[in-house]
């Protein structure tokens, strides 16, 4: 699952990390929209090349590269399949563009998720008028997923030591083997959820209509600048794409 790390927050101190999540979200969406506007190799390469400096500014280039390497097999797979199945005039060229677009999209989103702490994300959601309960549920999911993982492993060990053979048999047998893991896991989780709820209730969760927040996110000058620049880029690209039209050079394809 190392390729998922491309969307996992990493603690760093960089210009990008210090930006407000909302302005970063805007940047990411603009990058994603631009990637979706094109299906030719040259423009997509340009988009991709302009995302790299942003990653570098976030000091996350190496991490990004590492998880990309993990994704390489998948990308080649997509490319081959698309070439074989596509009915257009230039199947290979087309699937290279598709893959490039996918990479550009993933890179745009990883720019956001690599640099936004889950706490900041939930605070951003709250300040974007999402109800506190929902935003908090999301951050709690992040909090307890590792705990659940540990618990699952503990139960697996316990069942193995009682003679349950988890990794044996055919497919059906293996699916059946999940039951002695899942059932205790659900029971344990419900119990845990009750005791978490008890603790939260004791600390006034949901008590006041006017919940306060120790720290609120602030949109600073640099955030406004980022939003304005991204908006400018988006408008320019839209103008070039739809009103002016791309020069022939940009429509080059591999030829088969």
């Amino acid at each position: 699952m190392s390729f998922l790390e491309i969307f996992q927050y990493t603690r760093q101190d960089s210009i990008i990390h210090r930006l407000d999540p909302r302005s970063k979200l805007f940047l990411t969406l603009v990058c994603a929209i631009i990637s979706l506007l094109f299906l030719d190799i040259i423009p997509l390469l340009i988009i991709f090349a302009s995302l790299l400096p942003l990653l570098a500014a976030a000091k996350s280039l190496r991490r990004w590269a590492k998880s990309m390497k993990g994704l390489l097999v998948l990308l080649v797979f997509i490319m081959v399949f698309n070439t074989l199945l596509s009915t257009g005039p230039y199947p290979f060229s087309y699937s290279v563009s598709l893959t490039l677009r996918l990479v550009a999209l993933m890179t745009s989103f990883s720019l956001f998720f690599l640099t936004v702490h889950p706490d900041e994300l939930s605070q951003a959601l709250i300040q974007m008028r999402v109800r506190f309960e929902f935003a908090f549920a999301m951050s709690m999911a992040m909090r307890y997923v590792p705990t659940l993982g540990h618990e699952a492993y503990a139960i697996m060990d316990a069942q193995r030591s009682r003679g349950v053979e988890l990794d044996k048999g055919n497919f059906v047998q293996r699916v059946r083997n999940i039951i002695p893991i899942i059932v205790p896991l659900i029971i344990v989780s419900i119990r845990r959820a009750l005791s978490i709820a008890e603790s939260m209730e004791s600390r006034g969760f949901g008590a006041s209509e006017n919940r306060t927040y120790m720290e609120r996110l602030q949109f600073r000058r640099r955030d406004w600048s980022l939003v304005i620049v991204s908006l400018g880029v988006l408008v320019t690209v839209l103008y070039l794409r739809f009103i002016v039209g791309l020069p022939d050079l940009f429509l080059w394809n591999i030829g088969f």
């Binding site: 706490d119 951050s139 978490i196 209509e209 006017n210 306060t212 927040y213 120790m214």
Partner: peptide, 19 residues
């Protein structure tokens, strides 16, 4: 009893809830 992602937030959780 620890429901948030860091210690500062955890300590702030109760009083924040009460407004």
């Amino acid at each position: 009893q620890l429901v948030t992602l860091n210690v500062e937030k955890e300590i702030a959780f109760g009083p924040e809830n009460l407004g």
